[in-house]
């Protein structure tokens, strides 16, 4: 049985990369606005459905369809924050959570208008290939996940720690009123960050579309894994979200193989429960409180 372990680690890290990307996109939203977007899973899946629409219905090649999809989700995230989140930002936390959930369900409803509850398959940009090394196999999809997430993580680190934009977002994460006191247009930057977070989540959705059939209800599945990655890594920590996603990916595979296949579905719930009880700030988070 132990001979399976290297393969489980490789597969776990690969799927964990996807969770990491979704967790990373949620963390970016949280860093700017200290709001956890509970509708994020549906926006992630919307990214994959947009590619489906652009490739099947508009007959665009995959890469232009992907870029258009990311642009559309950026615009959607920007407008979503401007029109629905910002007007109630000073209200109770529960209102923000309910608004995010309601928008997620509305997006899911829109997908159902076109696809019903039918599952759909996103066209592939390349043929699947397999690579063997040291008694493990890795697919081209898995290698793609790893490369994309590492690139996104490096880009995020650079943007958030080395640029003026990043310093402003960092300031807003500390105190939005303080940011306004030094002349930062807090609303504009919040809008932009929601756009970036949604586009990044959509990229995760598109990659998920490579390995899963698309289902309008899959938003819950993605949300929970992204949220678990964010919780384990620590709210607000970019690299924490990535490491959290990787750990959850590996745990799912290992527990699902050695204990019971049921653990594939419940690992993320268990992680959320244990972390919130034992170490609420996660592995790398600095703030124990959050706006939901």
């Amino acid at each position: 049985m132990l001979s399976l372990l290297p393969q489980l680690l490789v597969s776990g890290i690969a799927i964990g990369m996807l969770y990491a990307l979704i967790g990373l996109s949620m963390t970016i939203l949280y860093r700017a606005t200290t709001v956890v977007n509970f509708g994020h899973g549906d926006l992630v899946m919307a990214g994959a459905y947009m590619v489906l629409i652009f490739t099947i219905h508009v007959s665009l090649p995959f890469i232009p369809a992907l870029l258009l999809s990311l642009a559309a989700l950026f615009g959607f995230g920007y407008l979503l924050h401007r029109a629905f989140i910002w007007p109630i930002i000073a209200g109770p936390h529960l209102s923000l959570a309910m608004m995010a959930i309601a928008i997620g369900y509305a997006v899911r409803g829109l997908v159902r208008l076109e696809y019903g509850s039918e599952m759909a398959k996103m066209p592939r940009p390349f043929e699947e290939q397999f690579f063997f090394a040291y008694n493990t196999v890795m697919t081209l999809d898995e290698i793609t996940f790893c490369v994309v997430v590492v690139v996104m993580l490096i880009a995020s680190y650079f943007v958030f720690s080395k640029t003026r934009f990043g310093r402003i977002v960092q300031a807003m994460f500390q105190t939005q009123r303080g940011a306004a006191l030094v002349g930062i247009n807090v609303r504009l930057y919040n809008n932009l960050i929601w756009g970036v977070g949604c586009a990044l989540g959509a990229l995760g959705g598109v990659m998920l579309g490579l390995i899963l059939v698309l289902d309008p209800d899959a938003g819950v599945w993605t949300l929970l894994r992204g949220f678990a990655a964010m919780t384990l890594g620590g709210f607000g920590s970019l690299y924490g979200a990535v490491i959290g996603g990787l750990i959850i990916g590996v745990l799912e595979k290992v527990l699902g193989t050695y204990v019971s296949t049921a653990f594939i579905d419940i690992t993320c719930y268990l992680v959320i429960i244990v972390v919130l009880l034992v170490r609420p700030r996660g592995l790398f988070g600095q703030h124990a409180t959050l706006r939901i």
Binding site: Q170, A171, Q174, T175, G178, Q286
Partner: peptide, 9 residues
């Protein structure tokens, strides 16, 4: 009055 500083910076 609350100063609103960036406490972790």
């Amino acid at each position: 009055q609350a100063r609103d500083l960036f406490g972790d910076l």
